[in-house]
Amino acid sequence: MTASPAAKRKPGKLTRRNTWIAYSFLAPNFLGFFCFTLIPVLFSVALAFLTWNGGSMSRITFAGFGNFATIFKNFNFAKTDLGITLRNTVYYTFFTVPLTIALALALALALNRAGRGAKALRAVFFFPYVSSIVAICMCWRFMMMKTGLINQALAVVGISVNASWTQDKNLAIWSIILVSMWRNAGYYMVMYLAGLQGVPAELYEAATMDGANGWQKFWKVTFPMLTPTTFFVSVMMVINCFKIYDMVAIMTEGGPGRATKMLVNYIYDMSFVSPKYGVASAVAMVLFAIVLTVTVIQFRAEKKWVNYM
C-alpha cells in the first residue's frame, strides 16, 4: 500500500494533508479533463433530447424522444439515412475485421519465424499506421483511378476493371476496406507478436514429439493459445471500424450517392453541414450504444479468460 503506516493509524491531519497533496497532483489534468471531456460527454446525452438547429440558444426546445423518432422513422436499410449509414458501417466492419486479422496474424507468424531482418520488416509493416491518413488516402485514390496503377496491375493478371474504384457503386466500399487493411494490419500484427511471445515452447515440443506437422501445430497449439489476443484485437477493431470517418471523407466523400456514407458521416453532416444538433446527438447515442455493447461484452469475457492465461 502506498500511504505511510503512520498515516493509516491516525486518520487525522496527515491523511487530510495527503489528500490535498494528491488533489494538487490531479488538478492540472482533471480541470481540463472535467471541462473538455466529462462535461461534453454529459452534454451530448442531454442534447439528444433537445431541438436546436445551431442558432441562438433561446431557440432551443425540449424534444423528448422526438430526435430518436426522427432517425428511426420508416427505418429501412436501403432508404433512410440511419439505415443506409448503419448498413454501410456494418458491411465495412464485417469484412474489414476478419480480413485484417488474417493478414495481421499471417504477418506476425511469418515474422516470428524469420530471424535476421525481422525487426526491420516489422517496422516496414507498421509504417503505414503512422503515416498520415490524408496523404496515403489521396495516394490510394489516385492509384485506384480508372487508368491508375491498380487497374493496370490487375490487367496484367487478366482482370479488367473499367472504373475508378472510389467512384464505382460496388467497388467504392471495397477500396476503403482494402486501404484500411493495408494501413492497420501492421498495428494488430504488433499485438499478435506480443501474444506469440506468451505461447510456451514446451507445447510445441510436445506437439513435435506427438508427430504433429506445421499445419496441425498452428490449429492445435498456436491458434487456441492466441484466443485472448484474437478476442482483444477483434473487439478493438470492431470499435475502431464503427468510428471510421477520415478515410471515407478523403477517398469517396461518402459517395457515389450514399454508397459509402458511414455512421460518423451522418453525425458530421447533422452537426456541421446542415445543423440539427438534436438529431446529430441522437445518432451519436446510437453509435455510443453499439460501442458500449461491444465494450461490455469484452469486459465480461475478459474476466472469464483470466483463469486460462
Binding site: S271, M285, L287
Partner: peptide, 14 residues
C-alpha cells in the same frame, strides 16, 4: 471507452 465522435458536437458548441 466513449468514442470522441459522440461528444465532438458539444465540444464544438463549447
Amino acid at each position: 471507452a466513449v468514442p470522441w465522435q459522440v461528444y465532438m458536437l458539444p465540444q464544438f458548441i463549447m
